[in-house]
Amino acid sequence: MLILASAAWPGLLAALVIGTATGFWAGPPAGRGPRLAAGFLALLAVATIATALAGVVPGREGFWVESAALMLTAYLAGCGLGGFGKERRTGS
């Protein structure tokens, strides 16, 4: 997966930047529904990473799973950075 990250760094950087902008725009999840949705996305990221690391899916489809795991993780990390950065900046 390290080789994939070194080849796909522009996409990972774009996912991180888009996630940061989205998190800053939306802010941290407030209320039960948004928190459940954020938890579901985090669970989806963990399941995708586990599938990629286990090597369950071979070939081209496995490459797609590994790419999705990396991109989703970078996007969610950016969302967290942007959302909590806005919370600290505004104090709300």
Score class of each variant (00 low, 15 high):
12 L>C: 08
13 L>V: 15
13 L>I: 11
14 A>I: 14
15 A>W: 05
15 A>R: 07
15 A>P: 05
15 A>F: 07
16 L>E: 02
17 V>F: 05
17 V>M: 05
17 V>D: 00
18 I>F: 04
18 I>A: 11
19 G>I: 07
19 G>L: 05
20 T>G: 06
21 A>W: 09
22 T>K: 08
22 T>S: 10
22 T>M: 07
23 G>S: 07
24 F>V: 05
24 F>H: 10
24 F>A: 11
27 G>D: 13
28 P>N: 13
28 P>W: 10
30 A>G: 11
33 G>W: 14
33 G>S: 15
33 G>N: 14
34 P>Q: 15
35 R>G: 06
35 R>N: 14
37 A>I: 15
38 A>D: 12
39 G>Q: 07
40 F>A: 14
41 L>Y: 05
41 L>F: 12
42 A>K: 12
42 A>C: 15
43 L>V: 15
43 L>N: 10
45 A>K: 07
45 A>P: 04
48 T>Q: 09
48 T>S: 11
50 A>I: 14
50 A>H: 09
50 A>S: 10
51 T>R: 09
52 A>R: 02
54 A>Q: 06
54 A>V: 07
56 V>C: 03
57 V>P: 01
57 V>W: 02
58 P>V: 03
58 P>I: 03
59 G>R: 00
61 E>S: 10
63 F>G: 08
63 F>E: 09
64 W>L: 09
64 W>A: 04
65 V>C: 00
67 S>N: 04
68 A>V: 08
68 A>K: 02
68 A>G: 03
69 A>I: 02
71 M>H: 08
71 M>F: 10
73 T>G: 09
73 T>P: 01
74 A>P: 04
75 Y>E: 02
76 L>N: 01
76 L>K: 02
76 L>A: 00
76 L>R: 02
76 L>P: 00
77 A>Q: 04
77 A>T: 15
77 A>K: 05
79 C>L: 14
79 C>V: 15
79 C>W: 12
79 C>G: 08
81 L>S: 06
82 G>L: 05
